[in-house]
Simulated scan of single mutants.
Amino acid sequence: MNASVAFPKPSLRPYLAADLPLLAEIRLAAIEELTIEDYDEAQRRAWADLADDEAGLGETLKKGLSLIALISGAPVGFIVLADGGVIDQLYVHPAVARTGVASALCDAIEKLARARKLENLVVDASDTAKPLFDKLGFTAERRNTISVEDVWLGNTRMKKKLT
């Protein structure tokens, strides 16, 4: 993406049930296209297979504090804050990667978490997302590995103190 082209700042709003099919597509596109440098083909396929659960995503979005990022009125990303200050989901469409959409979502969730008097935000950041969370002031606590379909995926537990 040409850095000299100004990219519109996203607007944010709460999740609506009608968003679900498009958000499921955004999540799969992000996994398949944005993680290529950090995860091999087998890892991306296993992750995408695990993520290909629209009903499960719908439950997560309903249960958590879920924000949708929009550009020109169309959803381009989302974030979910679950109980305990856990950022459960953060995905942006590949077309808007590295344009500030994920940062805007994280900033908004942090403000809401502070308003709710949460002491920390916690995330199990993919290797792809870790640089973003580093930039936002999160610190790495430990390395995690999870087995999905006999394939190992790594991520990093990160925390940001809010108090």
Rank of each mutant, 00 (worst) to 15 (best):
P131E: 06
N120I: 08
S103T: 12
A129N: 07
D124C: 14
A102S: 12
V96L: 10
K130R: 15
S66A: 13
G85T: 03
V122M: 14
D88C: 12
R116F: 00
F133R: 09
I71C: 11
D124I: 12
V92M: 08
D127R: 11
A74P: 02
E59N: 07
L132Q: 13
L57Q: 14
R114K: 12
F78Q: 04
E59I: 09
R116A: 05
L121P: 03
A82C: 12
G100S: 08
D88N: 13
P94T: 14
P131H: 07
L118F: 02
K130P: 08
A69H: 05
A140Y: 05
V122T: 15
K135N: 14
L67S: 06
A104N: 04
L70K: 03
T60H: 12
C106F: 03
L61I: 11
V92R: 08
A102M: 04
A108N: 08
A82Q: 12
I79E: 02
D124S: 15
K63D: 11
I71Y: 05
L67H: 01
V123Y: 01
R116C: 00
K111W: 04
R98S: 13
A113C: 05
E110W: 00
A125C: 12
D127L: 14
P131L: 08
L65I: 09
L81E: 09
A102F: 04
D83Q: 15
V122N: 13
L118T: 00
K62Q: 15
G64N: 04
V92Y: 04
S72E: 15
S72A: 15
E110T: 03
K130A: 15
S103I: 08
I87D: 01
R142Q: 14
G64Y: 03
A125G: 13
P75I: 05
L70W: 04
K117D: 15
A104W: 02
F78N: 00
Q89E: 14
T139V: 14
L112F: 01
S66N: 12
K63S: 13
G137R: 05
G77E: 01
E110S: 02
I109P: 01
L67K: 03
S103V: 02
L118Q: 04
D88E: 14
T128Q: 10
L67A: 04
A129C: 10
G85P: 07
G84S: 14
R114Q: 02
G64V: 06
C106K: 04
T60N: 07
V76Q: 05
K130E: 15
E59F: 07
A69T: 09
I68L: 02
L112C: 02
T60P: 05
N120A: 11
G64E: 07
E110H: 00
A140E: 11
T60S: 15
G100T: 06
A125Y: 06
I79M: 04
E141S: 08
A69P: 09
G137L: 09
L118N: 00
A113F: 00
K62R: 15
S103W: 00
T139C: 13
A140Q: 13
T128K: 06
R116N: 03
E119M: 09
K63T: 12
T60W: 03
A113E: 00
G64W: 01
K62P: 08
A113H: 00
V86N: 10
G77W: 02
D127Q: 14
